[in-house]
Protein backbone atom coordinates (compact mmCIF):
# COMPACT_ATOMS: atom_id res chain seq x y z
CA UNK A 1 0.00 0.00 0.00
CA UNK A 2 1.07 3.56 -0.53
CA UNK A 3 0.12 5.42 2.62
CA UNK A 4 0.32 9.18 2.95
CA UNK A 5 0.26 11.18 6.17
CA UNK A 6 -0.13 14.96 5.97
CA UNK A 7 1.29 16.87 8.90
CA UNK A 8 1.78 20.42 10.08
CA UNK A 9 4.41 21.82 12.38
CA UNK A 10 2.75 23.90 15.10
CA UNK A 11 3.61 25.78 18.26
CA UNK A 12 3.90 23.70 21.39
CA UNK A 13 0.51 23.78 23.11
CA UNK A 14 2.22 25.30 26.15
CA UNK A 15 3.56 28.21 24.11
CA UNK A 16 2.73 31.70 25.26
CA UNK A 17 1.33 33.71 22.37
CA UNK A 18 2.84 37.10 21.66
CA UNK A 19 1.43 39.49 19.05
CA UNK A 20 4.19 41.57 17.45
CA UNK A 21 4.03 45.23 16.48
CA UNK A 22 2.94 44.23 12.97
CA UNK A 23 -0.22 42.64 14.31
CA UNK A 24 1.08 39.17 13.49
CA UNK A 25 1.81 36.37 15.95
CA UNK A 26 5.49 36.07 16.79
CA UNK A 27 7.22 32.68 16.61
CA UNK A 28 10.35 33.88 18.34
CA UNK A 29 11.64 31.42 20.90
CA UNK A 30 8.60 29.17 20.49
CA UNK A 31 9.13 25.43 20.73
CA UNK A 32 7.76 23.75 17.59
CA UNK A 33 6.13 20.35 17.56
CA UNK A 34 4.27 18.06 15.20
CA UNK A 35 0.59 19.02 15.53
CA UNK A 36 -0.70 16.51 18.12
CA UNK A 37 -3.59 15.30 15.94
CA UNK A 38 -1.18 14.74 13.07
CA UNK A 39 0.84 12.43 15.31
CA UNK A 40 -2.22 10.17 15.46
CA UNK A 41 -2.32 10.31 11.66
CA UNK A 42 1.35 9.34 11.34
CA UNK A 43 0.95 6.58 13.92
CA UNK A 44 -2.06 5.15 12.07
CA UNK A 45 -0.16 5.35 8.80
CA UNK A 46 2.75 3.38 10.28
CA UNK A 47 0.40 0.82 11.82
CA UNK A 48 -1.36 0.44 8.47
CA UNK A 49 1.99 -0.25 6.84
CA UNK A 50 3.00 -2.70 9.57
CA UNK A 51 -0.21 -4.63 8.92
CA UNK A 52 -0.42 -4.39 5.14
CA UNK A 53 3.09 -3.67 3.93
CA UNK A 54 3.98 -0.80 1.61
CA UNK A 55 5.44 2.59 2.35
CA UNK A 56 4.54 5.63 4.41
CA UNK A 57 5.17 9.03 2.86
CA UNK A 58 4.83 11.97 5.19
CA UNK A 59 4.20 15.36 3.60
CA UNK A 60 3.96 18.92 4.83
CA UNK A 61 3.96 22.52 3.70
CA UNK A 62 6.32 24.78 5.61
CA UNK A 63 9.69 26.46 6.00
CA UNK A 64 13.18 25.21 6.89
CA UNK A 65 12.20 24.20 10.39
CA UNK A 66 9.44 21.93 9.09
CA UNK A 67 12.23 19.50 8.21
CA UNK A 68 12.59 18.82 11.93
CA UNK A 69 8.94 17.81 12.12
CA UNK A 70 9.35 15.53 9.12
CA UNK A 71 12.50 13.96 10.58
CA UNK A 72 10.58 13.26 13.77
CA UNK A 73 7.95 11.38 11.74
CA UNK A 74 10.70 9.50 9.89
CA UNK A 75 12.14 8.55 13.29
CA UNK A 76 8.70 7.25 14.30
CA UNK A 77 8.86 4.95 11.28
CA UNK A 78 7.71 6.75 8.11
CA UNK A 79 9.80 5.82 5.07
CA UNK A 80 10.30 9.12 3.32
CA UNK A 81 9.20 12.71 3.46
CA UNK A 82 8.24 15.53 1.13
CA UNK A 83 8.37 19.18 2.11
CA UNK A 84 6.62 21.75 -0.05
CA UNK A 85 8.59 24.92 0.62
CA UNK A 86 8.11 28.16 -1.25
CA UNK A 87 8.23 31.84 -0.35
CA UNK A 88 4.75 32.14 -1.85
CA UNK A 89 3.42 29.68 0.74
CA UNK A 90 4.42 31.74 3.78
CA UNK A 91 1.21 32.56 5.62
CA UNK A 92 -0.81 30.51 3.14
CA UNK A 93 -4.48 29.93 3.94
CA UNK A 94 -6.08 26.47 4.15
CA UNK A 95 -7.19 26.75 0.53
CA UNK A 96 -3.64 27.34 -0.70
CA UNK A 97 -2.25 24.49 1.40
CA UNK A 98 -4.85 22.07 0.09
CA UNK A 99 -4.19 23.17 -3.51
CA UNK A 100 -0.47 22.47 -3.10
CA UNK A 101 -1.04 19.13 -1.37
CA UNK A 102 -3.66 18.08 -3.92
CA UNK A 103 -1.30 18.87 -6.77
CA UNK A 104 1.49 16.84 -5.17
CA UNK A 105 -0.79 13.90 -4.44
CA UNK A 106 -2.49 13.86 -7.81
CA UNK A 107 0.73 14.00 -9.83
CA UNK A 108 4.19 13.39 -8.33
CA UNK A 109 2.89 11.27 -5.47
CA UNK A 110 -0.13 9.77 -7.19
CA UNK A 111 -1.13 6.18 -6.60
CA UNK A 112 -1.82 6.35 -2.86
CA UNK A 113 -4.31 4.01 -1.23
CA UNK A 114 -5.09 6.05 1.84
CA UNK A 115 -4.34 9.53 3.17
CA UNK A 116 -4.23 10.33 6.87
CA UNK A 117 -4.41 13.81 8.38
CA UNK A 118 -5.07 15.13 11.85
CA UNK A 119 -8.64 16.34 12.42
CA UNK A 120 -7.35 19.89 12.84
CA UNK A 121 -4.21 21.80 13.74
CA UNK A 122 -3.98 23.26 17.22
CA UNK A 123 -2.67 26.58 15.92
CA UNK A 124 -5.31 27.99 13.56
CA UNK A 125 -7.93 25.45 14.62
CA UNK A 126 -9.47 25.75 11.18
CA UNK A 127 -10.02 22.04 10.44
CA UNK A 128 -10.26 22.83 6.74
CA UNK A 129 -7.42 21.02 4.98
CA UNK A 130 -8.78 17.46 5.41
CA UNK A 131 -12.15 18.24 3.79
CA UNK A 132 -10.69 20.55 1.16
CA UNK A 133 -8.06 17.98 0.21
CA UNK A 134 -10.66 15.19 0.00
CA UNK A 135 -12.76 17.36 -2.30
CA UNK A 136 -9.81 18.36 -4.48
CA UNK A 137 -8.80 14.72 -4.87
CA UNK A 138 -12.43 13.60 -5.22
CA UNK A 139 -12.05 11.18 -2.32
CA UNK A 140 -14.38 9.71 0.22
CA UNK A 141 -13.55 11.06 3.67
CA UNK A 142 -14.07 10.10 7.28
CA UNK A 143 -13.54 12.91 9.76
CA UNK A 144 -12.64 12.92 13.45
CA UNK A 145 -11.98 9.20 13.36
CA UNK A 146 -11.53 7.30 16.62
CA UNK A 147 -11.41 3.76 15.20
CA UNK A 148 -10.50 2.40 11.79
CA UNK A 149 -10.35 -0.97 10.11
CA UNK A 150 -9.25 -1.73 6.57
CA UNK A 151 -10.20 -4.86 4.65
CA UNK A 152 -10.81 -5.82 1.03
CA UNK A 153 -10.10 -2.36 -0.28
CA UNK A 154 -12.65 -0.84 2.08
CA UNK A 155 -12.34 1.35 5.15
CA UNK A 156 -14.71 1.23 8.10
CA UNK A 157 -14.34 4.26 10.34
CA UNK A 158 -15.92 5.30 13.61
CA UNK A 159 -16.31 9.08 13.56
CA UNK A 160 -16.99 11.36 16.49
CA UNK A 161 -20.01 13.59 15.85
CA UNK A 162 -21.72 16.05 18.19
CA UNK A 163 -23.28 14.01 20.97
CA UNK A 164 -22.25 10.60 19.69
CA UNK A 165 -20.55 8.75 16.89
CA UNK A 166 -21.30 7.18 13.55
CA UNK A 167 -19.79 4.42 11.48
CA UNK A 168 -18.90 5.09 7.87
CA UNK A 169 -17.90 2.67 5.15
CA UNK A 170 -16.08 3.65 2.01
CA UNK A 171 -13.94 2.22 -0.75
CA UNK A 172 -10.25 3.09 -0.86
CA UNK A 173 -8.59 5.36 -1.67
CA UNK A 174 -10.02 7.59 1.03
CA UNK A 175 -8.97 10.35 3.39
CA UNK A 176 -9.09 9.77 7.13
CA UNK A 177 -8.74 12.61 9.64
CA UNK A 178 -7.54 11.38 13.00
CA UNK A 179 -8.92 12.20 16.43
CA UNK A 180 -7.33 11.43 19.79
CA UNK A 181 -8.28 7.89 20.74
CA UNK A 182 -7.58 6.42 17.30
CA UNK A 183 -4.32 4.97 18.64
CA UNK A 184 -1.52 5.40 21.13
CA UNK A 185 1.26 7.35 19.47
CA UNK A 186 4.66 5.70 19.74
CA UNK A 187 7.82 7.54 20.65
CA UNK A 188 10.56 7.38 18.07
CA UNK A 189 13.04 4.78 19.29
CA UNK A 190 16.70 5.73 19.44
CA UNK A 191 17.57 3.42 16.54
CA UNK A 192 14.63 5.04 14.73
CA UNK A 193 16.18 8.47 15.30
CA UNK A 194 19.50 7.22 13.90
CA UNK A 195 17.81 5.74 10.82
CA UNK A 196 15.76 8.88 10.20
CA UNK A 197 18.92 10.80 9.35
CA UNK A 198 19.43 8.67 6.25
CA UNK A 199 15.84 8.47 5.02
CA UNK A 200 14.98 10.57 1.94
CA UNK A 201 13.52 14.01 2.50
CA UNK A 202 12.62 15.79 -0.70
CA UNK A 203 12.06 19.55 -0.82
CA UNK A 204 9.81 20.80 -3.61
CA UNK A 205 8.99 24.33 -4.66
CA UNK A 206 5.71 25.40 -6.20
CA UNK A 207 7.28 25.38 -9.64
CA UNK A 208 8.48 21.81 -9.06
CA UNK A 209 4.79 21.00 -8.62
CA UNK A 210 3.76 23.01 -11.67
CA UNK A 211 2.05 25.72 -9.65
CA UNK A 212 2.52 29.47 -9.66
CA UNK A 213 2.30 31.93 -6.81
CA UNK A 214 -1.01 33.14 -8.26
CA UNK A 215 -2.49 29.66 -7.94
CA UNK A 216 -2.00 29.78 -4.19
CA UNK A 217 -2.73 33.43 -3.45
CA UNK A 218 -4.59 33.45 -0.15
CA UNK A 219 -8.27 34.33 -0.15
CA UNK A 220 -8.38 34.54 3.63
CA UNK A 221 -6.07 37.24 4.95
CA UNK A 222 -5.22 37.88 8.58
CA UNK A 223 -5.63 41.63 8.97
CA UNK A 224 -4.39 41.65 12.56
CA UNK A 225 -4.19 39.41 15.54
CA UNK A 226 -5.00 40.56 19.04
CA UNK A 227 -4.84 39.05 22.49
CA UNK A 228 -8.18 38.20 24.04
CA UNK A 229 -9.33 40.39 26.89
CA UNK A 230 -7.75 38.95 30.03
CA UNK A 231 -10.13 37.40 32.50
CA UNK A 232 -9.83 38.83 35.95
CA UNK A 233 -9.98 36.80 39.08
CA UNK A 234 -13.39 37.35 40.61
CA UNK A 235 -14.63 36.93 44.14
CA UNK A 236 -13.30 34.29 46.50
CA UNK A 237 -16.11 32.85 48.58
CA UNK A 238 -15.07 31.79 52.03
CA UNK A 239 -16.72 30.44 55.15
CA UNK A 240 -18.56 27.31 56.22
CA UNK A 241 -19.71 25.00 53.43
CA UNK A 242 -23.42 25.79 53.80
CA UNK A 243 -22.73 29.49 53.95
CA UNK A 244 -20.46 29.44 50.87
CA UNK A 245 -22.90 27.36 48.86
CA UNK A 246 -25.80 29.67 49.73
CA UNK A 247 -23.71 32.66 48.74
CA UNK A 248 -22.69 31.05 45.46
CA UNK A 249 -26.23 30.12 44.47
CA UNK A 250 -27.47 33.61 45.31
CA UNK A 251 -24.71 35.20 43.20
CA UNK A 252 -25.31 32.89 40.25
CA UNK A 253 -29.01 33.63 40.40
CA UNK A 254 -29.09 37.34 41.17
CA UNK A 255 -25.78 38.82 40.09
CA UNK A 256 -24.70 36.63 37.17
CA UNK A 257 -28.25 35.54 36.30
CA UNK A 258 -27.07 32.27 34.82
CA UNK A 259 -29.30 29.84 36.75
Amino acid sequence: MKIVACIKQTFDTEAKIVVGGNGQISDEGVNLIVNPYDEFAVEEAIRTKEKNGGEVVVVTVGGDKAQEALRYCLAMGADRAVLIQDAAMVGADSRAVSIALAKLLSEKEAGYDIIFTGKEAVDDGAAQVPSRLAEKLDLAQANVVTALSLADGKATATCEIDGGSEILEMALPALISAQKGLNEVRYPSLPGIMKAKRKPLEVLSLSDLGLSADDVASKVVLAAAELPPARKAGQRLTGEVDEVVAKLVKLLKEEAKVI
Binding site: D93, S94, R95, S98, E120, D124, G125, A126, A127, Q128, V129, P130, S131, R132, L133, A134, E135, K136, Q141, N143, V144, C159, E160, I161, D162, S218, K219, V220
Partner: peptide
Protein backbone atom coordinates in the same frame (compact mmCIF):
# COMPACT_ATOMS: atom_id res chain seq x y z
CA UNK B 1 -18.98 25.07 13.60
CA UNK B 2 -20.52 21.75 14.56
CA UNK B 3 -19.26 18.37 13.42
CA UNK B 4 -21.60 18.84 10.43
CA UNK B 5 -20.36 22.32 9.48
CA UNK B 6 -16.72 21.61 10.30
CA UNK B 7 -16.69 18.89 7.67
CA UNK B 8 -19.16 20.22 5.11
CA UNK B 9 -18.08 23.86 4.91
CA UNK B 10 -14.47 23.24 3.83
CA UNK B 11 -15.55 20.55 1.38
CA UNK B 12 -18.08 22.95 -0.16
CA UNK B 13 -15.54 25.79 -0.07
CA UNK B 14 -13.08 23.67 -2.03
CA UNK B 15 -15.75 22.84 -4.59
CA UNK B 16 -16.72 26.50 -4.92
CA UNK B 17 -13.04 27.54 -4.60
CA UNK B 18 -13.69 30.25 -2.06
CA UNK B 19 -12.21 31.37 1.23
CA UNK B 20 -13.64 30.13 4.51
CA UNK B 21 -13.10 31.37 8.05
CA UNK B 22 -13.75 28.62 10.59
CA UNK B 23 -15.04 28.87 14.12
Amino acid sequence: HSSFGKELAPRAAAKVDCGLVSD
